[in-house]
Amino acid sequence: MSIFISKKTKLIVQGITGRDGSFHAEQMKKYGTKVVGGVTPGKGGSKVAGIPVFDTVEEAVAKTKANTSVIYVPPPFAVDAIFEAVSAGIKTVICITEGVPANDMMKVYPFVKENGARLIGPNCPGLISVGQSKVGIMPSTIVKKGGVGVVSRSGTLTYEAIWALTVAGMGQSTCIGIGGDQVIGTNFIDCLEAFQADPATKAIVMIGEIGGSDEEDAAKYIKKYVTKPVVAFIAGRTAPPGKRMGHAGAIIAGGSGTAEDKIVALNKVGVPVAGSPTELPAALKELMKSAKKAAPKKAAPKKAVSKKAKAKKATVKKVAARKLAPKKQRGLKKAASPKRTKKAKK
């Protein structure tokens, strides 16, 4: 098992005749991914690395029964490519493209949701379900089959963490990069939910960074629904404040966004945060040892549907309510697991 992609993944590559598209189509095929087709308007009928090219996604899906698409087209056309893939019935779309305008993403995201599809990215390295399928640009040489699920907002930093796990003999189930943009299709919670439900995943590594409140929200989710051991790393402790965030943004995030806030939020729910990505394997081993001793007591994961439905409705009330949430939590959670946290933090 794995999350989001597996042996059943039948992939088409949008932008397959471009420099990146053709190179990575071949890499993915070499890894064993079932790359059944590519799409470049005007290049239908040709082949790239033995992969048939179609003019439209609709045609590619009709002829190949593809269920997944990866997008390598340039930023001005990436959002249209997402619309096209979802309209053609593709249920999993991975957008690698960097530089997609956030406003375009705000418009395509509801369309993806309404059609019951999943979007990963944009501006992400994609994912590997080790030994089954690779979609995107992650180097396959650094992974090793095993039980650790890795989820990250970053690219090369993810490789660093995966490599550290591999060197320590801790293989991975699925490694996924969700992307570093402001508006992304799949967030930490979506991945945590999938990893929790995946029998092949025994433990989770989460790699976050400054900005937004995704890590804080993930911490709340972990507390409620995740029984598998989770360790984290947060990049950007030394990043100068305010350099990338507009000052009104800090208000929306309810005073969060700094590395320190995220580390505190994760520690409070018993997630150790490593001081360096190379220390993640040790932190995970430590946590798994202590987890064995304590019996799991968390509720079984409920589908996060209701949560998302709430998020959709977001109105004046919603945003106001969110501002209150962290405070409440703080009071409740003091006793979570100070022991585990201390050890991992050194």
Binding site: S152, R153, S154, G155, T156, L157, T158, E160, G180, I207, E209, I210, F233, A235, G236, R237, T238, A239, P240, K243, A259, G275, S276, P277
Partner: peptide, 27 residues
Amino acid sequence: YVKLDGNIGCMVNGAGLAMTTMDLVKR
């Protein structure tokens, strides 16, 4: 590129790894 006030110059590929490298310099 973002200029800071320290003494160790960093050249890295990837934003996340660049931030992490900075963090470790401090550490």
